[in-house]
Each structure stands twice: as structure tokens, then as C-alpha cells.
Design a protein around this nucleic acid. Structure first.
Lengths: 338, 338
DNA sequence: CTCTGGCACTCGACTAGTCCGAGTGCCAGT
DNA sequence: ACTGGCACTCGGACTAGTCGAGTGCCAGAG
């Protein structure tokens, strides 16, 4: 049904439309790509491609543009991933060098990805469910306040302000030690379980404080930072606004909705490699004029979260896919090392 | 030069233009605001106002719109701050309730401000220079890594991953204790000084680790989070994009430049109250079509950082000013309490 | 001196009409 | 199966022409 030449033409249409941003006609196609046939032949092939739903015309007597289905075929069968340039590899190295804690890593990653792809980048914070609690402390502050801190094996810190009432130093230290023995070494979920169980064993005068600390601690251990995402590169969207294209308003709005982004990333990503969602393949309606290129990332052994790029359906898929893959791998390695 | 009526007319023009978003003509003015004079009279007054530079016409035979100078006069002399509605006050309360650490407070504040004003909100992270170090710890992680943590009197936590080499638990604990005695109770700046001084006193076998820890610690204590800002409400900008107005692209770009925003906030804010910068009063060129309403905030005794709102010069100044003031005060109180 | 009604004028927004050319589909010929 | 040729379509750009909101100015009234 689709012979070699028709596929070549589709590929040429996609490539040309992505770089020129204009509907592409038969003549231009023959000129720019050395298909050794006449425009008329190309037209016939294009008619078939259109019938099959791979391309359309914005209006009669205009060139063709790819449909989502066309992009899909292009991504699946027609192009290989472009390897990154040396400059890009260097950019990755230098961007990430010196990141000193998890927040920092995520921030840098998201900027990096936005910069390389020239699109909107989204990075989910690493999940801590695979970690274990390493450290626990209660630090008294001013005016009866205190700060509870936990550190886990990945080096992630959580913190929370509580009202310590009039508890004295000794009580606090005592409680600290008790709780530490219970939760250190446990995974967050286990730790929560243990905390809920061991309510009875606390000495009387420690009770009120213990209640406050434990409930705060449970909250801290339960809410996983992977419910958060970082976004960067929103200005890159602006490039498309003057175009008679995608209305970017709903897109920008979606980008402030953490929940939506999380869901998108989560749904998009499969087990292994980079996943591409094109236009209407996207479950979230306001983003059906955009494509998402996403991947999971994590230490070598374990997926910890997702990251991805959002852009117009008309994007340079080969490069974007390469960039997402490279960044995901690099961050994974970086997380394992540090 | 400008009598009562002319001022009333200017006020009416600003009010009308802000709400209608269209150049306002003499007739509409007489109709909508019960000035007891004829359109012709209003026209004469408008001619004067225009001569003085308070208003202009986008083109001949269109209504007038206020100039920056016009807005300035309006803000300075013609309008009082609108008190917040009960609903808004409630919104503030409920938005902030349950914020449990400094990051959280800042995040909530910036969202809140964006929501109330329907503009882009910017909140600088609180400065820690007025704080003292409360807690210091070194937590060993996997694979020779360790995490350094500090907590200060405001409850802010900093953290940093280091390479601990092959240092054993005992050495680490020992070093921890030594450093703790040096820096706890000191302000960040003092602590840095002390750390730099006391290099000589460390036992031989502790040296390599100490060097790493101290240099990381110095970095941590030196870089003040008030070099960071949170931004929210970018989608609110989109409302203006379809208008033949402000090109929002440079604005969105500026919003990703932390440095620029910091500078703007810093320069805008005066000692005490809310400050308004209108259009060209703004030193940063791409933002000269926007206005900024900014204020400092902090505990009752001390300014710790700035916050503000960015929007089109044509904004509802009375409401925005009220909102910024209210939020700044509320956050200040909140910070003092928690 | 201040305000008003009247009037000529300006200029952008909108509509309608025209032209041009890119790009198409189809067909007959190689 | 491919190609050249041709009639056709339709959007974009340009031109005129009309409409009306809004102006500035002036002479006259209070």
C-alpha cells in the first residue's frame, strides 16, 4: 500500500514542514529533496498519503502538512534518533557539574533539557519510596517551635516546623532517640507503619510532644516529593504564538497544574525507553495540539521518576528524542553516583 | 493648572480604561461617570491633560488612554487603596494554613498572590543573614557519600552532598562535634569567618575530611536563599496576548531570569510601604510596558525579603496595592510566628 | 471667563471587489 | 508506471469606498 517512495515522500514532508514551518507542495519537495520523479508523480503519491490519513491540506491549493498519524509513522519507522552533538554533550556535563543536592540536580536538569531541546522541559522529583531513613532529628528553634528533619539514603532531606510546646531539652533528646531507633533503616512506608504501632510505649510526660512529632513525621514520610515537578523553558513556547498555530494559552495554563503534568508524565512513560505522544494521542484535551517526549530516569537499578519535553506536534522528533534519552541517562548516572 | 474637574476626568479615564480596556472618549465619559458637564467641555479638559502628558490618543479620532505619567498621578493622588473583601481575607487565611516549612510558605504565598491579583506574582525567598546557626550535622550515606545539614533559627534547612572518602563513623562524629561548637549560635557570616580561621587546630587524620566539609559548609552558609525567587501566575499574562497590546514574549522571558527579577524587586522596594513602578519607571527595558507593585516583607522587626506583582501598566492599582500589602503583612506575621 | 452646541475633519475598522500565484486533480500521451 | 499539460480552486494581498467614533475649534450663551 505504501511503497518505498511514498514513505520517502512522507519523510520529506515531515522534515520539510518541521524546518520550514510551512505547508509543503509537490514542487518544493522535488526541488529540495532529490526524489528522481516529477511533481505530478509526487502529487499522485501525496493524494494516496492523504487518503490514508497521513497528511492533510490546511485548505485547497495549499501544500500538505503531516497529521498526527503521519508524525507517528515518521517517528516509528522513518527516522532514527540523531546522536547528540559534541557541544551538547559538553553542555550536559558542565550544566550538571557541581550539583550538590537533589533539589539542585532537578533544577539543573530541567533547565538543561529546556535549553537543549528549545522546548518546555518537565522533570519530576525523584521518588523516595525505594530509599531508607538515614537520619532523624528534632531541632529546637525560637519561641517553642522546633524543626523535625529526616534524611534518607538518597540524600534527600525533609523538614517540618512544629509547635514543641514547653518541652524541655531533655525530653526532646529522649524522644529523638526513641524515634530514631524505630525508624532509622526502614523505608518510608515501613517507618510510618512502625510509628503508628508504637504509640503505647511512650512515657507519660512525653506524650503531648510525641503526638505532635509523630503526626508531623508521618506526614513527612508519607508525602513523596515525586508528587512535585519542575518546569522550565516556558518562553520557548512563545516562538509559536505569532504563528497561526496552536493557541498556547491552554498549554501555559496546563503547565501550572502540577497534577496534570504528573499524570501526563506517568501515563506517557513505558518501562524502558523514550516514549512519544503525538497530538491527540495525548489524553489531556488542552494539550492535544502538542506532543510530549518522555522517559523515566533513575539509578541504574531502579526507576525513580519521569522527565520529558512538551512542544508543538511539529517538532524535531529525532533530536528531541535523543536529547531526552541522553539527559535521562545522564541524570540517572548522576543520581547513582552522588 | 489641573483643577478638580480635570483630575476627576483623569481618574475617570484611568478607571474606565482599566475596566473596559478600550480608549475612552468624551461622550462615554460623560455618560458613564456623572460629570455634570457636556462632552465638549470634557474634550477641552482632555486636550489640556494631553498637553500635560497625562493621557494620549493611540491615533487621531480615537479615545484617550492614560500615559505612565497619568497612572502615576492616579496612584499618587487620586485613589485610595481598596480594602480587601472578606472573601479575599479568608482566602489568605486558608491558603497559608498548614504551611510547614519555609519553602512551603514561599510557594503558597506566591500562588496566593497570583490568585488574588490575577497577575504574575513574584516572591523572594527570605534572607537568612539575620539568623543564627542552630544545628549542624553530617549524615553518612551510601558509597562514601555524606550529607551536610545546617538548620538556622528561622527553621531554614540547607543541605549538601559531599564525598566523605573513607572516613569512619568515629572521625565523622568527632569532626561534627568540633564544627558544631564553632558555628552554632553564630550568624552565617560569622560562622564562615570562624571556619576559615580555625583550620590549624584539626588533628592530622581528620584533615582531608575536614577540608571537604568545611569548604562545602562555607558555600552553604554563604549562599543566601534570598538569591532565589518563586514565580506564579504566568498564565494570567495570556489574557493580554490577544489584545493589540504589550508583546508578552519579553515579559515571559524576563520571568525566567531570576537575577533580573531579584534586581527589580530589590530596586523597587523602599523602606516601608508598597511601591509602584509604572511602565518606563522600570529600569529593565523589556518590562517597560508593565508595572510592578512590590513590597518588602519580614518578621515584625526585620525585613527579610521582597515580594511583588507584575502586570500590564493598565492594571487595577488600588486592588493590587491592597492585595500586595495584605499578603506581605500576613506572611510577615506568619514567619514571625512559625 | 466658562461652558455649550454645532460643524467640519480625521482616521481606523469593515466590506467588497479584483488580481495573482501556488498548488492541486485529472487526463492523455509516452 | 511515469510525465507534461491544463483547467481549476482558493487564500493572501491590494485597492476603494463607506461608516462612525471621536476630535478640535469656534461662535454664542450665561
Amino acid at each position: 500500500m505504501l511503497d518505498e517512495r511514498k514513505l520517502a515522500i512522507l519523510r520529506a514532508i515531515v522534515t520539510d514542514y518541521v524546518s520550514m514551518r510551512e505547508p509543503v507542495g509537490s514542487k518544493a519537495l522535488v526541488d529540495r529533496y532529490h526524489l528522481n520523479v516529477s511533481p505530478a508523480t509526487v502529487r499522485n503519491d501525496m493524494a494516496v498519503l492523504e487518503e490514508e490519513g497521513y497528511i492533510t491540506q490546511p485548505h485547497t491549493s495549499a501544500g500538505r502538512i503531516p497529521t498526527d498519524k503521519g508524525y507517528r509513522l515518521f517517528v516509528d519507522r522513518l527516522e532514527q534518533v540523531k546522536p547528540l552533538s559534541a557541544a551538547e554533550k559538553r553542555a550536559i556535563e558542565s550544566f550538571m557539574a557541581g550539583a550538590a543536592n537533589i533539589d539542585d540536580i532537578v533544577q539543573r536538569t530541567v533547565r538543561l533539557l529546556a535549553q537543549i531541546t528549545q522546548q518546555v522541559a518537565i522533570v519530576q522529583y525523584p521518588s523516595l519510596t525505594v530509599s531508607t531513613v538515614r537520619h532523624f532529628d528534632i531541632v529546637p528553634l525560637d519561641r517553642g517551635r522546633a524543626l523535625i528533619i529526616t534524611v534518607n539514603s538518597l540524600g534527600a532531606v525533609t523538614q517540618r516546623n512544629i509547635d514543641a510546646g514547653d518541652a524541655d531539652e531533655q525530653t526532646i533528646a529522649d524522644l529523638r532517640a526513641r524515634i530514631a531507633t524505630v525508624i532509622i533503616g526502614a523505608s518510608p512506608t515501613d517507618a510510618v507503619g512502625k510509628l503508628q504501632d508504637c504509640g503505647g510505649t511512650v512515657p507519660e510526660q512525653m506524650r503531648p510532644l510525641a503526638a505532635v512529632v509523630v503526626s508531623a513525621l508521618i506526614e513527612m514520610l508519607s508525602d513523596d516529593p515525586s508528587a512535585k515537578v519542575a518546569v522550565s523553558g516556558v518562553p520557548n513556547l512563545m516562538k509559536y504564538s505569532d504563528q497561526y498555530e496552536t493557541n498556547i494559552k491552554p498549554v501555559v495554563e496546563a503547565l501550572e497544574e502540577q497534577v496534570v503534568l504528573l499524570k501526563l508524565l506517568g501515563e506517557a512513560v513505558s518501562n524502558d525507553d523514550v516514549v512519544v505522544r503525538i497530538g491527540h494521542e495525548n489524553p489531556y484535551e488542552p494539550l492535544q495540539t502538542t506532543s510530549m517526549v518522555a522517559s523515566s530516569y533513575g539509578s541504574t537499578t531502579e526507576t525513580v521518576a519521569h522527565l520529558g519535553v512538551l512542544g508543538p506536534t511539529r517538532m524535531d522528533y529525532p533530536s528531541t528524542i535523543a536529547a531526552v534519552r541522553a539527559v535521562a541517562r545522564y541524570v540517572g548516572r548522576f543520581l547513582s553516583e552522588s
